[in-house]
Amino acid sequence: MAPANKAVVFTDFDGTITLKDSNDYLTDNLGYGEQKRRDGNIDILENRVKFRDAFKEMLDSVPTPFDECVDILVKNIKLDPGFKDFYAWCLAEGIPVIVLSSGMEPIIRALLTNLVGPTADQIKIVSNQPKHLPDGTWTIDYHDDSDFGHDKSLAIRPTANLPKEDRPVLFYCGDGVSDLSAARETDLLFAKYGHDLITYCEREGNPFVVFKTFSDIHRDIKDIMENRTTIDEVAGRYGREKAAAAAATAT
């Protein structure tokens, strides 16, 4: 069982805290389009291309000035309907929420401030940055030299490696290919329904639980922290539900 008030929530931002991935939105509407983007994601999942290369190509297809991109996203990106309540609960419980993102910090900060309000300033962001070029265009400036451009596991590992008596319970919430490096680092992984992270976890045999909104995550983490259930029980739910669905189909 988890001791009360001893947890950290690491979470992806785009498509996890938000309903739509802001980088996908830019690419689909201003760049080279949805089909080519999806083809690139499949290439990443099948190990035919590095994430950092496909993601940079995707963003470089967007000709719109960076500040205009931020304004467009603030007007169009919506918040997961359960996140505000979950974040308010985390603040009250003293549970840090840390965003680990393959996106760019100015976009993430602008969206969090717009969608969550002033308390969003307490959310730490570890992400990439934009690089403004002399000709007025921009590209992505990666956080590190990994194949991901931002290896999210590197931000989690120092906490995960703390001595047992000091180590908090670690949760991770994500949806896509940029979350692959973080998938094995925490005690419980929440993978968004209908997205690529589930495909990866099933292929690799990585334990996870499916969520549809942050209301699901809120319920499960609250129950764990208040000793109404265990991490193992929550993690085993998806397998039980999948087996039950398969049995029902067979009959």
Rank of each mutant, 00 (worst) to 15 (best):
P81Y: 10
G82A: 06
G117Q: 05
T11D: 05
H195F: 15
L79I: 07
L30V: 01
T16G: 02
V9P: 04
I140V: 15
I17R: 02
V97A: 08
I224Q: 04
I198P: 03
A110L: 02
P63F: 13
P3G: 04
N227F: 04
A235I: 08
A246D: 13
K75W: 00
K242S: 08
P118A: 13
K56N: 09
G205K: 08
P168D: 11
V209Y: 05
Q35D: 14
V116I: 15
R228W: 07
T119Q: 11
F208D: 05
L30P: 01
A183Q: 09
C90R: 07
P168H: 13
A110M: 02
D43K: 08
D43C: 06
D85R: 12
A160D: 00
W89A: 07
K124S: 14
S178Q: 11
E241P: 03
D135I: 09
T137N: 12
F211G: 09
Y238Q: 12
S181A: 15
H218F: 10
D53H: 06
C173D: 09
T213K: 09
A183H: 05
L162K: 15
V99L: 00
P168N: 10
A247C: 03
T199I: 08
A7W: 01
D141T: 04
D85E: 14
A54W: 14
I123Y: 02
L79D: 08
D43M: 13
D151E: 15
A155Q: 15
D196N: 10
R48P: 00
W89Y: 10
A248W: 04
K78E: 14
T229I: 02
N29W: 13
V209P: 05
T199K: 15
L73T: 02
E226D: 09
P81M: 12
D147M: 12
L73K: 06
P63E: 06
A110K: 07
D53W: 01
A110V: 00
S146V: 05
I140S: 09
A88M: 13
P81T: 07
R184Y: 07
E165W: 02
G236F: 07
E202Y: 02
V169F: 11
G239T: 09
G94S: 09
T213E: 12
P134M: 15
